[in-house]
Design a protein around this nucleic acid. Structure first.
Lengths: 352, 352
DNA sequence: GGTATTACTGAACGCATGTAAAAGGGAGGA
DNA sequence: TCCTCCCTTTTACATGCGTTCAGTAATACC
């Protein structure tokens, strides 16, 4: 009977005040209990625990946050969702933040600077303890970013606008990773040309420059294609396919090494190669090779499987949260800026 | 000068009270202005607007929500992020909700019933106006779902647990879509076998059953493989590859039509086919065919490009928001339950 | 047994805003 | 000029809970 009553319909209680009279302790005692059960005596603790079994009560999120010095919330801004790189990053961030005891509120910019700026406003109005920002890129509203930074601890993730050089940053070492890829391709075949992506973010430029630097270091002539916008849907895959379709149709690059700015571009490139009857791969000495960057989750399942250089997304997520939490707990903004770059790791598969 | 001052450092104001004295109107007038500028006189309106130009002020999110009848927030629960289907759904939902003037708070279950239940708790404690729930599946904590439903308007999206039959639901008509795919494959080649996915959610079962029904309707013997869990990473692609690797290695299914439970499984299947030197496609009459379900964004870029049946994700997102908003505005829960299913659309490409 | 110390509790106040009711103020009509 | 009506503003109270601090009970010590 009692068990049935428990299971079926507990008495619903809306405020801590009601709960206090229902259990027979004072409201402040309950407040302390919810923040940390150790802060009340053992007897009260047990009494409250038993009381909570018999009722249905959820503390009001807004009321609890309103009057606290720390809201326990971390805000995350990401540019868009339809990319498995960002979703992996987000999952890593959420796991790390959860482990540290923070609540994560994510806002997606949907590639729109206005929405990104509004997300910053939202976080300020929520008094989040800190923010992790993967910025849109050149189009970002820098004033909004600055306001956010002036109010609360911020860490940039993945991409770092040149216009905000003295902010904490966690991302990939593109000089190393792109250099590694370039070097690998030079070693196993002809020096690569670089299939760029439209310069929507700063990583795009960084990788281009890293490619050029490594090529010159190795004594080769750099050659870049695909910086122009060819398709309007904004899909990286469609871009890669369009660029290589054009080249292959003109009889160019049929025996080249092609280093793509990222894996999604490379997947489009693979598609174009297949359409033209080409089989990119390490097996054919001197023939067409296609390589990506990032280690997108689908790489092992591409046809042929895509050789790439992996970003350590998990580590980037963890490190960014770790740094942010440290800054938050230090109260004031740390004096020295931190820039943490993770090296890429070669993933040799079939395509190069 | 004045412009410079504006641009550089506006006076920062923390509370509405301060703002009121700074501008010279009463605080409640400001409150009404922020909710709807039309609710104050034109003179006050202009005065406030001018005043806001000169200061930096963000209303406190928690305080504004605390004492309102409606928080203007819609909560969204999705099972995991590393799937472009859900990210597309989420984008559609966010766009639609934004257009309706709602703020969206998304919580990801990370495939964990505990986290899913906690997300429900969070939404209750935030007094969200309503919730859109894409449930985890069989493992979901049904009691948590029920509590959520008893407190606020809910609409299930994408997947509907059998244990909650009388809740509003918006999703795909799998009987129609899977039937369409089955029929198509029967028409252009040999009757398909069905490559299932582990039965993590209810759509998996629905599609299996729809396949069986259509096969029997057409007078063919249904044949299902891949219901067992073969790999531990939980990736659909790896599952599809593992199942077909095994079959092909045993010399089975080399000339069959294979209908995959979803596109990610199919992408793994394509990978397995390539590994065994097979070229699935409509071009070879009577030969191996592979077809998916969903129209995952990468389908056109697969090698060969993947024939599939598209779910209208955009429509599902819009309809779910629309229904939820309607329920919210009707105050009380609507009497009649609504189930809205969208038909799938055939996307014929190269693989089948 | 008495006193000093500690641990815990609860009354009172504060938080930043929403909101209903009362006061104000201006226009229009007599 | 005065009064009424309508709209706006203001006053006052409400929201649900964090937090401080004085008071009290419990414990330790002599």
């Amino acid at each position: 009977m009692g068990a049935d009553k428990d299971r079926d319909q507990k008495r619903r209680i809306d405020t801590m005040e009601e709960l206090a009279v229902a259990i027979g302790v004072s409201r402040p005692t309950l407040s302390r209990y919810f923040q940390d059960p150790e802060r009340v005596s053992r007897t009260s603790r047990e009494r409250i625990a038993q009381g909570l079994e018999r009722v249905e009560y959820v503390p009001n999120f807004f009321a609890t946050r309103l009057n606290r010095k720390s809201t326990g919330i971390i805000g995350v801004v990401i540019p868009y969702l339809n990319d498995l790189f960002f979703t992996k990053l987000l999952e890593a961030i959420e796991r790390a933040a959860m482990a540290e005891g923070y609540t994560v509120i994510t806002q997606c910019s949907h590639s729109d600077p206005l929405i990104e700026a509004r997300a910053a406003e939202t976080f300020m109005s929520m008094s989040v303890d800190g923010a992790l920002v993967a910025p849109l890129g050149n189009q970002s509203d820098m004033k909004a970013h600055e306001r956010l930074r002036s109010r609360l601890p911020c860490v940039l993730v993945d991409s770092r606008p040149k216009s905000m050089p003295n902010v904490d940053f966690v991302g990939s070492n593109h000089v190393q990773s792109t250099g590694l890829a370039t070097e690998y391709l030079c070693r196993v075949g002809t020096p690569p040309i670089f299939l760029a992506m439209p310069r929507v973010n700063f990583n795009a430029m960084e990788r281009e420059l890293a490619y050029i630097a490594k090529m010159e270091e190795l004594g080769h002539e750099p050659h870049i294609i695909g910086t122009e916008v060819l398709n309007d849907d904004g899909l990286f895959e469609a871009h890669g396919r369009a660029v290589l379709d054009r080249e292959f149709a003109a009889g160019r690059l049929l025996e080249s090494s092609v280093l793509c700015a990222n894996d999604r571009v490379a997947i489009g490139a693979l598609r174009a190669a297949a359409s033209h009857g080409l089989e990119p791969g390490a097996k054919r000495q001197g023939g067409l090779r296609i390589m990506g960057h990032d280690d997108y989750p689908l790489c092992p399942f591409a046809v042929p499987s895509l050789t790439t250089v992996a970003q350590d997304v998990e580590a980037i997520g963890r490190a960014s949260v770790s740094r942010l939490v440290k800054t938050i707990q230090a109260q004031k903004n740390q004096d020295e800026q931190i820039v943490k770059l993770f090296d890429g790791e070669l993933k040799v598969r079939d395509s190069a």
